[in-house]
């Protein structure tokens, strides 16, 4: 049995599964806000899967409406940043395997 399991695992590793679920890498939001925020991000990125700018705009507008402006949103596949944010408003997450999304309020 154990051997079989191991074999299965090896097969899985061989396949290289591509994960698409959202991972929150860093956030100091409280739990409810974080959940809502992740929801917004998922919706936006799924809707504008080919257009990061539109996705970022959509996220920003939604966040402004829900939690009050001014929010800043970065959606991209490769970038670096150093930001100053208001405490309890930062969310840094991965989504769809290739996107990194950073949301903060100044």
């Amino acid at each position: 049995m154990a051997d079989l399991d191991q074999a299965d695992k090896k097969e899985c590793e061989g396949k290289k599964i591509i994960h698409t679920y959202p991972i929150v890498k860093n956030s100091d939001m409280h739990e409810e806000m974080k959940l809502e925020c992740v929801e917004i991000v998922v919706t936006a990125c799924e809707k504008h899967s080919a257009n990061n700018e539109a996705a970022a705009r959509m996220i920003k507008e939604q966040m402004d409406k829900k939690f009050g402006p001014p929010f800043h949103v970065v959606v991209g596949e490769g970038y670096g940043f150093e930001i100053t944010y208001e405490c309890k408003t930062l969310l840094y997450m991965y989504f769809a395997g290739t996107l990194a999304i950073c949301i903060w309020k100044s």
């Binding site: 890498k25 490769g78 670096g80 100053t84 208001e86 405490c87 930062l90 840094y92 950073c102």
Partner: peptide, 23 residues
């Protein structure tokens, strides 16, 4: 309101590693 700074660097392989770790 209190503020803080945060910085990160995003590259495709960093995201991939992040996913692997999480999995």
């Amino acid at each position: 309101p209190p503020t803080d700074t945060f910085s990160a660097n995003i590259l495709q392989w960093i995201i991939y590693d992040g996913y692997q770790q999480d999995y």
